[in-house]
Amino acid sequence: MSANRQYCTFYLDDIFFGVEVEKVQEVVSYQEMTRVPLAPPVVRGLINLRGQIVTALDLRRRLDMPERPAGRNPVNVVVRADDVPTSLLVDQIGDVLEVSEEAFERPPETLRGPARELIHGAYKLKDRLLLILNMEKVVSVTGEAE
């Protein structure tokens, strides 16, 4: 009998994603951001999280997905990597799911592009796939836009 793991889940469009629950600090509803000129496009802005300044990354842009439809406010999933909190902007938050290790599979070789290194693998749930993100890679965006 293998171990079960817990994932914090969310949606981008209708794709179902998960992040290990230990890496999620908190989920915060949408708030006004301060944009950062000259930053890479994936950086949407800075938010004030109880006095701490946190960079918000647009996960859609990070995964080369189409832009979020106008008028739909994203949700902040605040994750910790290297002890630094970063906010990931997602469309909608899901439940915390417990999944069995046996249902995990690495992505197929046909997965190419930036998503290749960002998606660690998938859990085969009954009715859908839960894509697991490699958090360290997702938050490692550096440098200026050009």
Binding site: V36, L38, V43, Q52, I53, T55, V84, T142, E144
Partner: peptide
């Protein structure tokens, strides 16, 4: 003065951020 995250360290125009 609060430091910027590593995502933004490469931009020479900003020294930090504040609330």
């Amino acid at each position: 003065v609060k430091p910027l995250s590593k995502h933004l360290k490469g931009i020479p125009l900003f020294a930090g951020a504040t609330i």
